[in-house]
Every structure is written in C-alpha cells, then in structure tokens.
Write a protein that binds this DNA or RNA. Structure first.
Lengths: 331, 331
DNA sequence: CTGAAAGCGCTAACAC
DNA sequence: GTGTTAGCGCTTTCAG
C-alpha cells in the first residue's frame, strides 16, 4: 500500500491539501483539477488511510462498536443486520463483540474498542459494570443502549420493556384459562433480560391469583435442545402444569417436539408459549403463541439515532419500539 | 479522553518512551518505575490510542475484518462466534460486514475496511470481483477465505467442498431408494455455494441414472417460510417426486411443516433432506436427514490461522474441515 | 481556488 | 534502564 496523498499531489503537480479536498469531496478546486486528481488516484491504486485521518482529526472516525450478548442468537442476528445495513448506507464501519452475558466481558470489550476512538457505541442491555459506566461517561462517546429500556440511559436507549412482555404473556395465559403455569428458562443469573420477563410473568400471575407453580432455569444455551430436555425435567417435577412459558421460541419449539414425542397434545393437555417471534413460529403445524420483537427495526433505529446524534441532531433519550403478543394455536 | 503517554510521563517524571514500554509490557525499565507508571496511568484514567499506535507502526494493528454473506444466517452466526472467541482470546478486534451475496457489496466493504489498515481479513467464499482480488494482492494483507474450498486461494483457505456435499447427498438419496428427486433452493444466481451443492447433487443423480427431475429456486431468503411455500410450488409442478433436497435445514423444516399440513407422510410419501446441521434438525419428531457443517470450528481455525500467519508461522494454503452427512428419519 | 505549516499520539531506532 | 529524535498520512488553520 504505497500511494499517499503526497504521491498523488506530486504527480498531479498540486499540493497534497488540494488532493485531500478533492478526495473528501470538499470544495475549493477547479473541475479540471478534480478530474486530474481522481484519475491519478485511480491509476496509483490509492487507498486512503483512515487510521491517519481519524488520528489527525478525531471527529473523522466512522467506526461504530456494537456489543451483543451472543453472536449465535437468531434475534440478535436480525438486530445486527439492521445495524449493518443502516451503517453501511451511512458510510460507517462496524466493530463487533459478544459479551456472552457477562458484564466483565463487556467491559473488557469496551476498553478495547474505545481505544480505537470510535464515533460511537451500541450496547445491548442496560446493565453495565460501574467501571464501564465511568469509562463511557468519561469518554463522552455517543452510546445507544438497545434491547432493553432504561429510565436513565447513559446516553440514548432504544428498545422495549421485558417486564411488560412477561406481564402480557401472563395475562394472556390467564385469559386462555390456564391456571397452573410453569416457566422454562436458561442461562441462570446471566441473562438479565430473560429474568425481567420471568419477573413480569410472575407479577401478572400473582395478581390474577394463580401464582407461577414451577420454574426451571437451565445452565445451558437457550436453544431447541434445552427446550426439549428442559420441558421433560420441568414436567417431571411438576406434572400437573397446564401451560409452560419458555425463555424464547427456540426453546418453545424444542418443548413442542418433546410434547409430540410423548404424545402430549398441545394445547389440550398443555399450553406452550415462546418469546421472540422467530420465523419458524408461524409455520409450525400449530402456530406458536409468542411475542414478536422488532429486531431489525431496533438495529436500524439504533444506527440511525447514533449517526443523527453525531451530526448534532436532537434525539429523544428513550425510544420505545413496542413488542406484540401473537396469539397462536399452542395456548 | 485527555490523558496521553506524555501526561503520564510528566507526572511520573520519566520520558514517554519509558511509559510506552511499560504499558506495552516490553522490557527496559525498573520494577519501581513500572509500578509508578501503572499507578499513574490508572489514576489518570488513561485509555491508549490504538489509532496512533497502528498508524505510527502498521504492524501494530490488531484489527481483523470479516465479511459474511448474511448476518441473519444461523450457520454464519456460529462461524462468527468461533472467530470472535478466538480473536478475543488472542487480543484482536473484529470488524464485520455482510455482502448479501453480492460480490460488488463485498468489494465495497473490503475497500472500506482496508482503509483502516487491518492486520488481516477473513472472507466467505472463493469468488470475488477482479478488482477485489487486485486490491487484496496489492495490499499484501493476510486473507483467509473460508466456507468454500478453492484450489488457488488468494492466500489461505479453510473450508469444505460444496460440490462434494451435493454428491454425497445425491448418493444417499439413491441408496435410500429414491428415484424421482427434486431440489428446492433460494437466492437465485446469488448464492454461489448453494449452486455448487445443487451441481454436485445433479452430478451424482445423473451418474446413478436418475437425473434430478425438478428444480425450484426461489427469489427469497432461504428460511422456514420459503421452504414451506416453496415445497408447495415445487410439488404442484412435479407431484410425482419421491424426495426433495433443500438448500438448507431451515427450508427443509419449512418443507416438513408443509407436508404435515397436507397430510403427506415423511418419509413414506416423500423424503426430505436438509443441509447445515442446525440444532433443531436433531430433535424434530423425525430426525432430519442433513449434512453437518463444522461452523464454529471453521471460524476458530480461520482466526487462529490468520494470527499464526501474522506471527510468521507457516500455514498450509488449504485446510479441509470435512462435513458429515447425518442420516435421519426423513429420507 | 490553492498552498504551507503544524500537529494529532505513538513507536522504532539509536544514543547514552 | 532510560531518553531523544524522527516520522507515520492526514486534516485544520491560516495565508495567499
């Protein structure tokens, strides 16, 4: 990678400042100069050095860091997709990391990323270590916290309320006549947001006079298989349950598979509810009752809010993109 | 972000070079100096400026760029996870992009990323625009092409043969007594690797004397729903099929859902085969016949190969991580 | 419309 | 064990 502004300038017989202006699309040069410079840059195979640009003038950074809980999550895949498309369109680059539901890993990742002087950060969730919060405050970086709402975001927040998701689902189950309800989750004490949904569920059931009967939280990835064997465990302990709410759709679909294997009829013998609104939920033989989450929209909104903020726009501190409970045929 | 090496040096009463050495864990300072410097750095809330470091000495870059076809792909989610974990462990940062199965988008993304002077690149697939190849050759960056094999990689390749996947599946179907076989794919002319699997399938069936009877390639994302309605379309055109191979597991599961809805028995009335080995495939009421792909392993291997190469190790040009056909109960 | 000068924060190379 | 010097490629600022 040899050619620099200087090289182009020399060949073009102008100063490197003029070349810089042309290449950045600024103003202050004649059409003729522009054409010549562009031509030469092309010939020389010039590749700009963003490192130098961002270093020399820190507001020139077009790097955005984003941290998700897990890179293998279907839901966050869509969030990432929303972010990526928006950022690409806006001329930004995406640096990514997973925190594996650990605040300490998030902190470590943020430290690394911040040292690259990004233009801004997108974080998943509202809980961070105190050191993380300090670091972010000190760096004065634009930060969008997505996925979960927070009354007092570090900077901006875009998401929805997980507690409300739980409440809604609880009310739905009661409305459907379910009375002995269980919950199957995963990733004990790591997934704060799953815990919030559980809490909302408990609240609603309590209030309806039919408190949650059994809870099982697996120490496992919240996938199909965990739902499959987890439901077996849960029902072994609490065979009388007439409905089970799952951490997410993948686990719920796993649960459905187990029901089918055992000859348990859904929804007659037992009701099954998921969360997340994955595509498969809508084409199962019986459409899964679930909560649809605006994943791509959140990603897009987060990226756009961040960039708008960089450009000085006034963005509301908290943006709510509501979820929607989709009554299916499984409860 | 105020504190720089200079600031620490001033407070510590040493030169910034000494501070640099301490902070980088190099040698050439007393224990006492080290402790003092570290303490002061901590107090000052020093955050290193990697931009400056990488700019001043390009071999200091710890940025790795990775481009995947789609961020919403379950398979690539696992590849990314493998890459991310390995890179994090090795002290590198990950810059990411999606090419949406477009070589032009890949080229655009690579141009952006290369301007950040990364330490290396991980690309998905072996096909690139000529300009991309030129750019990569010129930049002399370490490049790992994953997912697909290539006889002549730009630099390094880690993956498996999609044609072989198709051949194996074709042979399996024949062995199971299927004679009138169809294929349901998606993303016409965009997904080169899906096309390679189809080609392998065709080859094997041809050779066995029972050429592929019908092919349907949807212009849609290769998800559950595409498999669902796509199978309906395919069977409307070719009702006599006794087996259908799908682009991937998600589509196959969608196809299974359609069969169930229509009362088609699997595998008696029709055989269903997927590709990819997603988790759900193993817990379906009837275990899906599919091909397992070593996603995480490929990601991990790619990251490790890249870093090893940066450190001067001698890496084989092509590494094969084989896939495995998993006979299930659906064909 | 164009150019010259200064400096961003760090590290390599070399001196002491 | 420690310091000095130079320079990475760009943009900002100020002069023409």
């Amino acid at each position: 990678m040899k050619a620099s502004l200087e090289d182009i300038a020399r060949v073009a017989g102008v100063s490197k400042m003029t070349v810089s202006r042309v290449l950045r699309g600024a103003s202050g040069f004649s059409d003729e100069t522009r054409d010549r410079v562009l031509q030469i840059a092309q010939n020389l195979g010039y590749v700009p050095n963003r490192l130098a640009a961002a270093f020399g003038a820190d507001q020139a950074s077009t790097l955005v860091g984003m941290c998700v809980p897990r890179l293998t999550s279907g839901l966050f895949g869509h969030v990432l997709d929303g972010v990526d498309r928006a950022l690409t369109r806006l001329g930004f680059q995406l640096m990514i990391g997973a925190n594996n539901h650990s605040l300490a890993e998030e902190e470590a990742w943020i430290r690394q990323v911040v040292s690259w002087r990004p233009a801004g950060l997108i974080l998943s969730g509202r809980t961070h270590t105190p050191a993380t919060v300090d670091l972010l405050r000190l760096s004065a970086l634009p930060v969008v916290e997505i996925w979960d709402l927070t009354t007092r975001p570090i900077d901006l927040a875009i998401g929805f309320s997980h507690v409300d998701c739980g409440v809604e689902m609880g009310q739905h189950l009661i409305r459907r006549g379910r009375r002995r309800i269980g919950y199957l989750g995963a990733l004990a004490r790591a997934d704060v947001m799953g815990a919030a949904r559980l809490q909302g569920l408990q609240q609603a059931l309590q209030q309806a006079g039919h408190p949650l009967e059994a809870v099982e939280i697996l120490h496992d990835a919240p996938g199909f298989y965990a739902g499959y064997y987890g439901l077996e465990m849960l029902l072994a302990r609490a065979p009388e349950l007439d409905a089970v709410a799952f951490h997410n759709d993948e686990m719920a679909i796993g649960g459905l598979a187990w029901c089918q294997k055992c000859g348990l009829r859904v929804p007659e013998d037992i009701g099954i509810a998921g969360w997340g609104g994955m595509e498969a939920a809508s084409i199962l033989p019986r459409r899964l009752t679930t909560t649809q989450v605006p994943t791509t929209a959140i990603g897009k909104a987060a990226a756009e809010a961040l960039v708008a903020r960089l450009q000085g726009a006034n963005i509301p501190e908290v943006t709510v993109l509501p979820t929607r409970l989709i009554p299916g045929e499984t409860v």
